[in-house]
Design a binder for these strands. Structure first.
Length: 242
RNA sequence: ACCUAGCCUCAC
């Protein structure tokens, strides 16, 4: 089953829903599909915005006595958030409550991002504030920090970064990418460099996002030499340009 | 170190 699930997940990545269905049909009688199998199928169909197929997976789950869980609904919820469909997101929340499930950090983070990007950062802040301290994780902080950064609230970003360390929520590569990007948008190559060094000092590996952001930062600041040097460093550490 | 859901750059 795990092999099947992994294959289905790979199909989700390529957006090949037909291929996913083909292998699922081929194997569903040899191995018993689990909740993860169905959740992964839903992920496949959400990537294609195929609501009908998603509903039929839910039906099949019901017929097979496999109860949907938080992942099932949050997969749906996040898909609606990605499309900025607040109505549908609300509907999914109501539906999951009817199953006795509540949205956890992951779902709330998706909602935060949607509201923030729809211009309602106040709503995003409320959702963030409603998260229990024990639930706050790196991605929740990253998402809220990025929204604040993009809204131009540099002091809020600083405050959240401090709060993360106070609460022992470890920053990751995305955290620093967000900070570097925020400095870049302000035109501060010095600020971007500062966070890049902090990232390395924290033992985190710069990603393609990091290099792309830095190249753009120095490029638009007119420092082509430095942008080029960063590009070469990227190749050096084995990251392919995209 | 991970079978499934949420975060970061750019692609006009």
């Amino acid at each position: 089953v795990i092999v099947l699930n992994r294959i289905l997940d790979a199909y989700a990545g390529t957006g090949d829903a037909e291929g996913a269905v083909r292998i699922y049909e081929l194997l569903r009688h040899r191995v018993r599909p689990t909740r993860v199998t169905f959740n992964t199928l839903i992920k496949v169909f959400c990537a294609r915005d195929n609501t009908n197929a998603t509903e039929s997976v839910l039906k099949t789950m019901g017929n097979m006595g496999v109860a949907p869980d938080e992942v099932t609904f949050v997969t749906l919820l996040s898909a609606h958030c990605r499309r900025a469909d607040a109505r549908a997101a609300e509907g999914t929340l109501a539906r999951m409550r009817s199953y006795g499930l509540d949205a956890g950090v992951v779902g709330l983070t998706s909602l935060m991002k949607m509201h923030g990007e729809l211009g309602d950062i106040g709503r995003a802040r409320e959702l963030f504030a409603d998260l229990a301290e024990a639930e706050l994780d790196t991605t929740a902080y990253n998402t809220m920090m990025d929204l604040e950064a993009k809204a131009g609230n540099a002091q809020a970003v600083k405050g959240m970064l401090r709060e993360m360390t106070e609460r022992n929520v470890a920053p990751n590569t995305s955290t620093f990418n967000i900070l570097i990007n925020a400095e870049s948008k302000k035109g501060s190559t010095a600020g971007a460099t500062k966070y890049f060094l902090q990232m390395e000092a924290a033992g985190l590996k710069p990603s393609r996002f990091t290099y792309n952001t830095l190249i753009r930062c120095f490029g638009q600041a007119g420092d082509i030499e430095r942008a080029d040097a960063i590009y070469l460093t990227m190749l050096d550490v084995g990251i392919r340009p995209d």
